[in-house]
């Protein structure tokens, strides 16, 4: 079954003048709308046996990463509210100092040998997932003078159809950098606020870690196959 078209007013535009890297990378031509075929309605079958879970970024090789330990939990549903089981989430982020565990990140902040910055988790039968990590730091990114990314965690989702593939970012409540960030501000108002996690005392574990909730919504299925391109 086909997926619903992406509704207007949710995704950021490909051409975002305030984000320099889009200038020469956004297509000039409109994409060609196609009906969904088996290619778009099916998706790779990921399993935790072939793609092992890694649920805790707060420790690496048995040692604790530096920083504020946090738990992030959420639920993946589709736009009809149906829980999405078996979704593979890939998670990646900077360390507490705002530095990625990569050669190409040259930000002058310390690396943490006990922080890998990557996790993988599958949603359960009710679409729920949870990981433990440390709160990442903000980092500079040279897009404009004195440009700093708000504190964020990257998420990649593999759903039940290739058309559901989603890569997004989670932000933290109350971050003053959100108002200044072209990538976050590029998402239309009303949709962007949903990228901000909520502090959640029910996710918080006593004497252990603060908890945040981040729910994500994937495209839903159309009731009938989409026969003609709209």
């Amino acid at each position: 079954m086909s997926f619903r078209p992406i509704p207007p007013g949710v995704f950021p535009p490909m051409d975002l003048p305030s984000y320099g890297s889009t200038h020469k990378r956004h297509p000039d031509q409109a994409p060609v709308r196609i009906p969904h075929t088996l290619t778009e309605t099916s998706a790779p079958r990921f399993t935790s046996s072939a793609y092992p879970e890694h649920l805790d970024m707060s420790r690496h090789n048995g040692r604790e990463a530096m920083g504020e330990r946090i738990i992030i939990a959420g639920r993946v549903t589709d736009e009809d509210g149906r829980p999405q089981p078996g979704v593979m989430l890939e998670v990646w982020q900077a360390n507490a100092a705002g530095r990625y565990q990569l050669d190409r990140d040259q930000h002058d902040a310390p690396l943490d040998p006990n922080f890998s910055g990557q996790a993988r988790v599958f949603t359960d039968a009710d679409g729920n997932w949870s990981i433990t990590t440390i709160r990442p730091g903000a980092y500079p990114w040279r897009n404009h003078h004195n440009a700093w990314r708000p504190v964020h965690v990257h998420f990649g989702l593999h759903g039940a159809g290739f058309a559901q593939r989603l890569v997004t970012q989670m932000y933290f409540p109350g971050d003053p950098l959100l108002a200044l960030d072209p990538i976050y501000q590029g998402v239309p108002e009303g949709a962007r606020e949903r990228l901000v996690a909520k502090f959640d005392l029910d996710v918080t574990r006593p004497e252990y870690a603060l908890g945040y909730r981040f729910d994500m919504v994937l495209r839903g299925r159309l009731a009938t196959p989409m026969e003609n391109p709209a």
Binding site: I6, S21, A94, L102, S116, Q118, L166, R194
Partner: peptide
């Protein structure tokens, strides 16, 4: 409302597993 997309960059390489480019790799799914 569906969740908005955000750029994968610039440091998506944390989820780069070079062996995934070889779908026929020894010991792999195919």
């Amino acid at each position: 409302m569906i969740t908005a997309s955000q750029t994968s960059g610039p440091f998506w390489h944390l989820i780069d597993f070079p062996e995934w480019a070889d779908l026929l790799r020894a010991g792999g799914p195919n």
